[in-house]
Design a protein around this nucleic acid. Sequence first.
RNA 1: GGAGAGGUGGCUGAGUGGUCGAUAGCGCGUCUUUGCUAAAGACGUGACCGGGUCAAACUGGUCCGCAGGUUCGAAUCCUGUCCUCUCCGCCA
Length: 425
Amino acid sequence: MLDRKFIIDNVDAVLRNCKERGVNPEIKRFVDLELIRREKLQEVEELNRRANEVSKSIGQTKDAAEREARKEQGRQLRDDKDRLQREHDDLDQTIHAIQMTIPNMAHPDAPLGYSDQQNLEVGRGKHPVRKFDFKPLDHVVLGEKHGWIDFPGAARTTGNGFYFLKGQMVLLDLALQQFAVNELVKRGFLPTITPDLAQDSILEGIGFMPRGPETQVYSIEDTNLCLVGTAEITLGGLYSGQVLSEDELPLRIAGISHCYRTEAGAAGRASRGLYRVHQFTKVEMFAFTTPEQSDALHEELRVIECELFDLLEIPYRVVDTVTGDLGGPAYRKYDLEAWMPGRGDNGEWGEVTSTSNCTDYQSRRLDIRFKRDGEKGTRFVHTLNGTALALSRAVIAILENHQNADGSIRIPTALRPYINCESLG
RNA sequence: GGAGAGGUGGCUGAGUGGUCGAUAGCGCGUCUUUGCUAAAGACGUGACCGGGUCAAACUGGUCCGCAGGUUCGAAUCCUGUCCUCUCCGCCA
């Protein structure tokens, strides 16, 4: 969330930002109520001060009648304070609720627009889109042909949107995980396996809505726990309420978790097969930085994503996300869209990774700060996240791009150390 | 899952209703002396939110796991809850 003082001092900029993002939170009302709240807080503190003064004097008063008189005075002051405090707290709650709906400010260079169709292409991978001399199959057909991916079985067992992976597909899946983790370790990331569940409050801090009709999150009945949609949630939670020292920043973490998403309302040909599923494994990059470091680290994450997909010899393009498609927490976001030859009629780009700089939007909600030497107090860190590999989508890209005419799959060179073969099937 | 013990400042650890935001030690900072891969002494040293100031000084409030309650007043009493440790049970 944005700082309250920042909102008050920059109302016009905040309003413009909301407009560019296509949302309309109650900014005016926020400002009005916050100004009232501040005054009320002053009154509460003054009453409290006087009550404290009276209480203190009672301890030093010997005369019994005098003590009783002061007690009565103290009671009166506390009652008045409590009444005002309640008014203040109600107000505060309302203000906080509005504050949570105000999105992060957007990077000044983020392209303007409301639809992902308007995302700005800013780069391409090393490998050009392949010309097939046969009709490429999509991953669903390939997966069934080899007995690698079992959707009907998962539908019986769990439901639509789940899958069993079998045989060589399991080896491919594990190889991709190891490949991604190793590449990140080389680049200074701390590999971390996180819980797959997290508390509602952490979800909210990261910017997810854990419950309610609009939610994309599975929640566990009779608990305050949810299945995480990404390790971003648990890694943010890991440091919630913590104060880091500046010399440990930037902190780079490679989180491995399962990801669970209800994907309410998503269906159709574009989400066929593994593209949009309720559960997948993901190797996620997460970073905590100082405010000065975050832009550069965002570039770093984007470059790593490119390097990984170049190593996997998959053609892709990079898009700079338009303001209206950023989501609440992101200041700027890049997506990698891999070429998926089996998608649509003649192949389409499909999102495989996404990296966001969330500046201090998440850290303010989760209270993650750092201490700077020689400076009083603390500041909020910046948080960034980026997909290294989302297994289900990476698998689509591998199967569809590296398929041979006979349906076998060529393993890209960089992956061979992790799977010990040159092709599958 | 059952029983017990405990959660206090960067750390260790006192503190069972009023002058406790909190004794003491360690650590840390400044200074002094000596002098050099070190020691001693003096003084100082929590965080957060606000007012105030160019900045300070100064100043109000809050904080002893968390949330409630009792009271004029709570680190101290009561309730709930979370976490840690020990023992038992169960188990991959």
